[in-house]
Simulated assay, not measured.
Amino acid sequence: MPQLHLIEQPPVPPVQQITPVEVQAMQRAFVNLAEKWDITDDQAAVLMGDISVRTFRRWKAGDLGRAGVDTAARLSNLMGIHKALRLLFKEPVRGYGWIKRPNDVFGGAPALDVMLHGQLTDIMRVRRYLDAMRSPW
């Protein structure tokens, strides 16, 4: 009977943690981005997943507080979407408006509609699409 041998696994890279300072910087950036994207406070709260409209309004007033892991992941992905749009569009206004324009890739729906389904994976879907669009660069 053959003997089993242990196969050594490569070391797992450490999971990069987002610091509270970085989260608060992303919260401030998202408040500004929500304004540039011309989305409502209700829509912004949905994009954040587990925050109330009242909490988002406190963010707008500068009272950022703490954010959980899910909120940090959402913020990070939304910042990635913003970065991709800035790289893809020469004029910032066109990039900001892109999220509300119908898109064949999303079955004719705007990217915002996809993201407003409320799941982190919906935001990630839009980010993956934009990252693929700019990948040759």
Rank of each mutant, 00 (worst) to 15 (best):
D41W: 12
F89R: 14
R74Y: 11
R58H: 13
E91I: 14
M133P: 01
I7G: 06
R101P: 13
K60Y: 08
P2I: 15
V23L: 14
P2D: 15
A29H: 03
I99E: 13
D50R: 01
M48K: 00
Q17Y: 01
P102Y: 14
V105I: 13
R57S: 12
N32E: 15
L75A: 04
G97M: 10
K90W: 09
D50S: 12
F89Y: 15
A73V: 01
A44D: 11
G108Q: 13
K90G: 15
L64D: 00
L116S: 09
R54A: 14
P92S: 07
D50I: 10
Q16E: 10
W137V: 03
G65Q: 01
A34T: 03
L112W: 09
R101T: 14
R94F: 09
L116K: 11
I7N: 13
V23Y: 13
A44N: 07
M26G: 04
R54T: 11
Q24T: 06
N32T: 03
V105A: 08
E8D: 10
R54S: 14
R101N: 11
K100S: 15
R58S: 13
T55Y: 07
Q16W: 04
V53S: 08
G65K: 02
R66Y: 04
E91Q: 12
Q9G: 05
A29L: 04
P92G: 06
I18C: 05
P110I: 00
A45M: 08
G118R: 09
L47Y: 03
K36F: 15
I123Q: 11
I39F: 07
G68I: 02
M79I: 02
I99S: 07
I81P: 09
D113T: 11
R57G: 10
A111L: 10
S52T: 14
E8S: 06
I51T: 10
P136H: 06
K90H: 10
Y96S: 10
P13I: 02
W98I: 00
R54F: 08
L116D: 01
A25T: 07
A73K: 15
V53Y: 11
K100Y: 09
L6P: 00
